[in-house]
C-alpha cells in the first residue's frame, strides 16, 4: 500500500472527522439559535405570511432532524468502523431496511405536499370582493403605482403616449376612465398606501425588463413580467412603513430599485386619498 496510513493515522483521521461532524451539528444548531435574534426573517406584517412562516418552521424542523440524524450517523460510523485490522462485513442487501427509508421519506413528502398545496391554493385564490385594488409597475430602476379614480376603473394604457414627466404611466387620454387615475412614484416622492386588515390585490406590470415585486415583511414576491399583468393579494396586519425590493436582476442599478409602502388605518387612508386627489 503506497498510502502512508498507519493504524494511528487512521485513528487520527477517524477521530478528526468524527469530531468535525459532531461539531458541525453543534455549530449548525448554535448559529441557528443565535441567528434567530439577529439574522432571521423580518418581523411579520401580513395574514398570509403567518401560514407561510408556520410551514417554513415546520419544514425547517423536519430537515433539521434529518440533518442531525445523517451527520450523527456519519460521525458515529467513521469512528466505529475505522480500519483497526478487522474484516468488513459482506453485507449489501436488505430489502426491509431499504423499503423503510424509501417509505418514511415518501410519507413525509406527501404530508408536506398536501399542506403546501393547500396553502398555495389559498394564496392564489380569488381576492375577496372588498379588497383594495392597486397597480404597480416596475421599471429600470424604480416602482410606480396607480390607484383608480372615483369611478373605480383603471384607464387604458398605451405605450405610444409615454412621457417620462407628463405621462409616466402612458395613460390613453382618449379613455375617460384614465382621466382620474391617481399615479404615484413610490420610489422617490410617494408611497404605496395600504389599509390595515383590508385585503389588497396588487396587479403588477413591467415597463422594460423583468422585475420582481418583493415586500419581505409581507412574505410577498411576484415577478413583474413585460407584456403580462401578474397579480397577488394579501392582507397587511400591522400599520407602519415597509420596503419594496426588486428581487429579479434588472440591470446595473437593480440594487437600488427600492419602493416604499405605508400601511394605515382606513381613516388615515381615506384622508390621504382625499387630500392627494384634490
Amino acid at each position: 500500500m503506497p498510502t502512508n496510513d498507519t493504524t494511528s493515522g487512521t485513528r487520527r483521521s477517524a477521530a478528526l472527522l468524527g469530531i468535525a461532524l459532531a461539531l458541525l451539528i453543534v455549530a449548525a444548531v448554535v448559529t441557528t439559535l443565535a441567528a434567530r435574534s439577529r439574522w432571521w426573517l423580518p418581523p411579520l406584517a401580513s395574514a398570509q405570511g403567518r401560514s407561510i412562516d408556520q410551514l417554513f418552521i415546520a419544514t425547517f424542523g423536519i430537515i433539521s432532524v434529518a440533518f442531525v440524524l445523517v451527520h450523527g450517523l456519519l460521525a458515529l460510523f467513521v469512528w466505529l468502523y475505522r480500519d483497526r485490522g478487522q474484516r468488513a462485513s459482506y453485507w449489501h442487501e436488505n430489502r426491509a431496511l431499504e423499503l423503510t427509508y424509501t417509505i418514511i421519506p415518501a410519507i413525509v413528502m406527501t404530508g408536506l405536499t398536501l399542506s403546501a398545496a393547500g396553502l398555495w391554493s389559498r394564496i392564489h385564490s380569488a381576492p375577496p370582493p372588498q379588497a383594495l385594488v392597486v397597480e404597480v409597475r416596475g421599471e429600470q430602476f424604480g416602482w410606480k403605482a396607480r390607484y383608480p379614480g372615483p369611478d373605480g376603473k383603471f384607464g387604458r394604457i398605451d405605450p405610444r403616449h409615454y412621457s417620462a414627466r407628463e405621462n409616466p404611466w402612458a395613460l390613453d387620454p382618449a379613455d375617460p376612465a384614465a382621466q382620474d387615475d391617481l399615479v404615484l412614484d413610490i420610489s422617490t416622492t410617494g408611497e404605496l398606501h395600504l389599509v390595515v386588515d383590508r385585503p389588497v390585490e396588487v396587479r403588477i406590470r413591467a415597463k422594460d425588463v423583468l422585475h420582481s415585486f418583493f415586500i419581505p415583511a409581507f412574505r410577498v414576491k411576484q415577478d413583474a413580467v413585460p407584456g403580462m399583468v401578474t397579480s397577488i393579494w394579501f392582507t397587511p396586519t400591522q400599520t407602519g412603513p415597509y420596503e419594496i425590493a426588486c428581487a429579479e436582476l434588472c440591470g446595473p442599478l437593480h440594487y437600488i430599485m427600492r419602493g416604499k409602502v405605508v400601511v394605515q388605518t382606513q381613516e388615515e387612508y381615506d384622508a390621504w386619498l382625499a387630500q392627494t386627489r384634490s
Binding site: 496510513d5 475505522r82 478487522q86
Partner: peptide, 23 residues
C-alpha cells in the same frame, strides 16, 4: 427527495460495519 434519501442511506449503510481507510 425519495430516491435522494435512498442514495444517502445506502451510502451510510455501506459504511456500517466497514473497514474504513481515510485516504
Amino acid at each position: 427527495a425519495v430516491p435522494s434519501a435512498i442514495k444517502t442511506f445506502n451510502w451510510l449503510a455501506t459504511l456500517w460495519r466497514a473497514k474504513i481507510r481515510f485516504t
